[in-house]
Structure formats: C-alpha cells, structure tokens
Amino acid sequence: MEALINIVLLTLLAVITVGIMFQRNLFAVVVLAGIYSFLMASVLIVLDAVDVAMTEASVGAGVSTVVLLGTLHLVRTIEYPSKRSALIPMLVAVATGAALVWGTIGLSPFGTADNAIHKHVAPKYLADSVKETLVPNVVTSTLADYRGYDTLGETTVIFTAGIGVLLLLKGRRRRGHIADEDSKVGRTA
C-alpha cells in the first residue's frame, strides 16, 4: 500500500515538474509550485516526518505562494522565451542530477535499522531523552537541547534572511517618491 501511495505521489511530482518546465504563464507556475509543495508534504507524511511535512505545507505551499503572487503583482506574468540556446543549462542540470543519483548509490539501503546514523548518538538520545529533559518527543529534545547550537544557527539564518530581504525591499523604496514616510524612517533610524 505504501509503495502504491509513493508511486502515485512521485509520479504526480514528476508530472508537475514537467508542467512547470513548459509553462510560460508565471501565475500557473506559482500555482503548480504550490501543488508541488503540498504533494511533497504528503510524501514527507508517508516518510513519517510530520514536522517537516507541516513546515513544507505552510512555508512551501502557503507563505511562499503568497509571496510569489505578491511578486507577480509587481512584474509581468508572462515569461519571455530566452534567446540563448538551452543546451548548456540543460547539460548542467543533467550533470547535477546524475551526480546526485550517483551519490545515492553510496548510501546504505533505505530504512535499514543498522545504518551508521542509527548507531552513533541516536540510541543515547532515545534512551536518555525523558530521563534528562522530561521531553518525550525526542525530535524536540534533540533539536532544542542536544543539538541546541545547530538550532541557534538555523534561527540566526532565518534572522539573517529576513533582515536581508527587508533591507533589499525597503531600502530601494526609500529612494522612491513616498517622501513623508521616508522622513519618518530617517528620524527613527
């Protein structure tokens, strides 16, 4: 049953990817990308990664779709065909894809219990999480406690990305024609 669900989901993902490639209407591309994210969230649920599925559904399908639609409001919605030949981008894409597939050959079989990653610190976390942190959800205790530095880094990445986008989008506007708001910004800054 799980294999059937996987086949259906992955086939739909491939169909939507091809659709995005040939679609010139960017509005349709944004909608297709939202559908892609929802399908991806379903795949992640099949993989028992509900946390990631939640993030994918809300960020990928929700917030980024809205932000992309907001961008389309500012630019034209038809993508002009490129004058250059698509040969080199195609070669780069195929080579990258082939390298990734080649990389998966070196991985141990999917879902086996005696993978190297399951033998390092994971057994300790699983055994000691409740005793040491009173948190039964090992994902949370690993992310926020055992691997707290990594999550601090991730939060800083989000902070940096947010500040970067705000600087780009708001800095340009200051040179624009909205004079009264500019003086306000200048005074507070």
Binding site: D51, T55, L134, N137, T140
Partner: peptide, 10 residues
C-alpha cells in the same frame, strides 16, 4: 511540541 510533532518553526 514536547509530546507530539511540532515546535517553534512550525
């Protein structure tokens, strides 16, 4: 998030 899936990001 301490008991089920989820946390600050989600």
């Amino acid at each position: 998030g301490d008991f089920g899936p989820g946390g600050g990001f989600q």
